[in-house]
Design a binder for these strands. Structure first.
Lengths: 176, 176
DNA sequence: GCACACATGTAATATGTTACATGATTTA
DNA sequence: TAAATCATGTAACATATTACATGTGTGC
């Protein structure tokens, strides 16, 4: 789905947060923090980085230590681009490409065995996710100072926790 | 994002729910009920329908009334395919390609003006969505019999409402 | 020096969107 | 009968995944 070129802005934000980052490390970010909101594999990221260097949003450098590694920095132009993107208000709610809902949607009979099966699975997935998120929260934000330094990140983590809890609660309710 | 061929199963489910449906009506389904969980445009749907006829999942027919319209029916093979898909348990939680979270993630400063701006916008989008969902609920499920006849659909609608309310509550909390 | 993880990159393919195109049916 | 909407279809392009490919650094 060719959305409106979100990926470069995400990469820009990552580089802005962590100067001197490598492509591999950027890739890793999509497997942890960002991973809940966006996915991208290295085969998407490397060409994108090239384009961004080309457009003057970032600059690359190498070191003697590691011949292959390339370190990226955001440029002032990149800063502008990032800020301009952040300034734009969101116009639409995201859609939830959610197989759980989708499958339920097609099951008509209240007594269909697959309903409790889907629900149980969903609940266990959500409980695992909740544990992970809570662990991240204590790990990344051990004190108030950490929260202060990365407030937006803190917000979305607590939001994800709240949302996950809510979904689990809902599942518990209908199980009865 | 080339996911694992979800679209044909969705279309199959739609045709199963509404025999004698046309391609245009299938397209319309993605703008109402299904639209919260999956999007597809007609340029994706028509070729897909062709493939599905070719694979024997559905059959097409025409009528004298309207020369262009093609009416689709699910075959017994299609029924099997659909049921097999519904039988498969979901293995992963969906990711939320959510610009709101993404943008917040990149804002570090607690006093950044853009945080309340993003939050206000999100709240108004969610409140609009909530109204729409509640309206759908009373419209599609006016009585208990309607619920009984389409239980899965009922579940995901109430789930969407619960989720939306939860998100609004969370936004209210942090606004203080 | 061999295995394994690191680090980057490309190619083939699948999927999705936007724009273009054409004719049929309905309605004023 | 002209305009709008219905109904289907295709083409060009954008985006994303999987698989392939290649060399580097590190630990044993």
């Amino acid at each position: 789905m060719p959305k409106k070129r979100i990926l470069p802005f995400i990469i820009l934000g990552i580089i802005n947060n962590r100067p001197h980052i490598t492509g591999r490390e950027i890739t890793a970010e999509f497997e942890t923090e960002i991973g809940d909101f966006w996915r991208a594999s290295h085969s998407q990221i490397y060409p994108e980085l090239k384009r961004m260097v080309n457009d003057g949003w970032i600059v690359a450098s190498t070191s003697q230590e590691n011949a292959k590694e390339r370190y990226y920095q955001i440029t002032s132009e990149g800063q502008e681009v990032l800020n301009h993107w952040l300034d734009q208000l969101v116009t639409d709610l995201p859609i939830h490409e959610d197989l759980f809902s989708l499958k339920l949607f097609f099951i008509k009979d209240q007594n269909d065995d697959r309903i409790p099966q889907l629900i149980n699975r969903q609940r266990s997935l959500l409980e695992k996710e909740l544990k992970y998120l809570q662990q991240r929260l204590t790990l990344v934000f051990p004190n108030k100072d950490a929260i202060k330094k990365n407030y937006g990140h803190y917000l979305i983590l607590t939001r994800a926790i709240s949302r996950t809890k809510g979904q689990i609660e809902w599942l518990k309710e209908i199980e009865e």
